[in-house]
């Protein structure tokens, strides 16, 4: 077996990447569904119905895309510079913690100031959390994958302590949760009688912002250059370490955004189930989008449909809803495979 680079890659081939990844992931999950004794076709219909079949279902799916967009952008920006930030989960909680600290009565500003203020604070917290592993990377050449992963566990235990200890809301009937954020810190709802909140608008603005940054600015150029080749960037006079640290602050900040928007838009208070692994799903979102910021919008929608749809599908077919996690993981591996096949052809001999 031998890999040969393709001469010209057409747009059609590029467009096939997410499609073929989706198909591979569907096939694999069909096998599991058949094993579980249900019909894959029925499961597919139920999945679409559960995620897009009604006004409420659509609103739930869109609500789910919000944190996925932020975390997907966080991974997309960092991975572009070959900074492997796997700590979006921890950075998300860091953002939520700061927003809880500031937003539950410590400061009260009019909403048009309060919301941007909380987002800025959350971004700062997320960015600073990633700064540690990044400095360890640039100074000591420590693999940031391991350090960011380990930090996730530390941050989650810290939040665990906060919501069981000092921040525990005495009004919450003994549930481990912090006090709710004050009204001026709450993101309003877009649609009445749904949970869809204005975080979606912020996420879309952030997406275009990141796209603009990566595509049209020197910073974005430097991030991409460092990711392509550190050696070439060095010869071109790009300060590599500074670019990596800047990337880390942006990436961590975006993950921090996710925490603030979930806190102020969806939950209203800090709990341990604020994120069921959005930070990790963000990696899949970014890879499905080939690290393109605008693609993140589509791929986060795909993952949201998958997880919201699988929830209701699994209930009615009596299949474990871990099927959504399996589908997400398979689509990550499948997209890697398909991306390679756009660049190379396999020649068997």
């Amino acid at each position: 077996m031998r890999l040969e680079p393709r001469e010209n890659v057409t747009l059609l081939i590029k467009a096939m990447v997410p499609i073929s990844a989706g198909i591979i992931s569907l096939l694999c999950c069909s096998a599991l569904i058949i094993w579980a004794g249900a019909s894959p076709l029925e499961a597919c219909v139920l999945l679409i119905k559960g995620s897009l079949g009604s006004r409420f279902a659509i609103s739930e799916t869109l609500t789910r895309t919000i944190p996925l967009i932020f975390c997907g952008l966080a991974a997309a920006v960092a991975f572009r510079a070959k900074l492997w930030n796997i700590g979006a989960e921890g950075q998300l909680y860091a953002g939520a913690c700061i927003a809880t600290w500031l937003g539950t009565g410590m400061i009260d500003l009019p909403p048009w100031l309060m919301i941007p203020f909380l987002f800025a604070a959350g971004a700062l917290a997320g960015g600073l959390l990633l700064l540690g592993p990044t400095i360890l990377k640039t100074k000591f050449a420590l693999d940031e994958v391991v350090t960011t992963l380990l930090l996730n566990f530390i941050v989650l235990l810290f939040v665990n302590w906060l919501v069981f200890g000092p921040w525990k809301d005495p009004m919450a009937m003994g549930w481990p949760q912090a006090a709710p954020v004050i009204d001026s810190a709450t993101l309003g709802h877009i649609l009445a009688k749904t949970r869809l909140h204005w975080g979606l608008a912020i996420a879309i603005i952030a997406t275009f912002g990141v796209w603009f940054l990566m595509r049209f600015t020197t910073w974005g150029y430097e991030i991409r250059a460092v990711g392509h080749s550190q050696k070439a960037s060095h010869f071109a006079g790009i300060p590599i370490n500074r670019v990596i640290i800047r990337t880390a602050l942006i990436s961590g900040g975006l993950a921090g955004f996710a925490g603030v928007s979930e806190l102020c838009g969806l939950k209203g208070y800090l709990t341990l189930d604020l994120s069921p692994g959005f930070g990790y799903s963000g990696i899949v979102v970014a890879m499905l989008a080939s690290l393109h910021p605008l693609g993140v919008l589509l791929s986060s929608l795909f993952i949201a449909i998958l997880s919201i749809g699988a929830d209701s599908m699994s209930r009615s077919l009596n299949i474990s809803n871990y099927i959504a996690d399996v589908a997400t993981a398979v689509s990550l591996l499948a997209v890697l495979l398909s991306m390679m096949l756009t660049k190379y052809t396999i020649r068997w001999r």
């Binding site: 796997i86 990790y280 899949v284 399996v326 997400t328 990550l332 591996l333 890697l336």
Partner: peptide, 10 residues
């Protein structure tokens, strides 16, 4: 990196 994370998730 990415394959490994994918395997872990899977």
């Amino acid at each position: 990196h990415v394959t490994g994370l994918g395997i872990t998730m899977l």
